[in-house]
Write a protein that binds this DNA or RNA. Structure first.
Lengths: 197, 197
DNA sequence: GTCTATAACTTGATAGAC
DNA sequence: GTCTATCAAGTTATAGAC
């Protein structure tokens, strides 16, 4: 009975890749629907149409399944935002960051819940600086490019804006009619005013 | 074997009130330390120094214990913020709201975790408008008092600022040295600039 | 008013048949 | 490669003794 290691995706057969992908997808759906607590091994197996033991054949532990699901959702977000940011001029990158992140989260609501759940629940392992660090750097660079001279704290600005993004997305999760694009522009306005000082 | 109903606190004896209070306190601590998932009936009973059955004598279900703990933390926050807001002139109330909420959450970190956990996890029952509604009203009133005329959306402003408050407090939870007072002033600045238009 | 004892169930995980 | 069968440990909750 061979047991799949957590990494080493390069050595997996096609059907194993498919199963892993399927398990990651149902786990994301499950976490989005019922939260971390509702994503039990039994529930994951049921949604995938296989047994608990079969799930644990493809992943060493339940935690590994959830971790893989989280990493999948996060990687998609990071790739999307990074592409949008790099396509913008340095002075406009903070705005591009806000717009693309709100846009991505709106377009992938289940990924969003997965990421939020992991952020809140992943005990200790989560580093907040990983969240606000990149935006803080973009703000610094943008201010340099614009020649702004006031003394703002990029860390706090990034933290506040990050929280604003989360809140906008959370609102849209509850009220699908909420206009996140306009809200994002509102947030961009506030950010622009702050960093232009 | 009489069974306590959930409400009707007025009819409780003194020692029952003490037990209820104690159970609420240990539950808040437990949720703050280990999250919703870690706050099992067994854990609550152990911290309170009684048995699981004894806990369920004072509350009908485990969910009722957690609900009571959440309501306790929330009531303290609301009372504190309401007092600070009412003490301020209408034009300054949005700022008072931000300062007092950040201040309260900083001074009661365990209550904070409890409230966040409930916000994220309380399935569906939670109404986001209850969060941004009051601040949106304060913003409206402040703009009226100042004679501001631009067209901002109080709802979105309130949502963004609420998210900013959460993010500041979350950061302080992870880095106790983070200066939330200064961060709150930063957020107040952004808010003031927005609503003065 | 608080306990012991236990019911009834779910959890994640393993061993071994096929 | 996926299954059945089983596991020990955890969960909430109840019944009834004291």
């Amino acid at each position: 009975m061979t047991r799949r290691r957590e990494g080493a995706t390069s050595e997996l057969t096609l059907i194993e890749r498919a199963r892993r992908t399927q398990l990651i997808e149902v786990t994301i759906e499950l976490v989005a629907d019922r939260g971390y607590a509702g994503a039990s091994l039994a529930a994951i197996a049921e949604r995938a149409g296989i047994t608990k033991a079969a799930v644990l054949y493809h992943f060493p532990t339940k935690a590994a399944v959830v971790r893989a699901a989280h990493e999948h959702a996060l990687a998609a977000l990071v790739a999307d935002v990074a592409a949008a940011v790099e396509a913008a001029a340095p002075a406009n990158r903070p705005a591009a960051y806000v717009r693309s992140m709100v846009g991505h989260l709106r377009e992938h609501p289940r990924h969003t819940r997965m990421i939020i759940e992991a952020m809140v629940h992943d005990d200790g392992e989560h580093d907040p600086a990983a969240r606000w660090g990149p935006l803080a750097q973009l703000i610094d660079a943008a201010r340099l490019a614009r020649g702004a001279s006031g003394d703002i704290d990029p860390r706090t600005t990034a933290i506040i804006v990050g929280g604003g993004i989360d809140a906008i997305v959370a609102e849209q999760l509850h009220d699908p009619d909420y206009d996140t694009a306009t809200a994002a522009e509102h947030l961009v306005d506030m950010l622009e005013t702050t960093i232009s000082r």
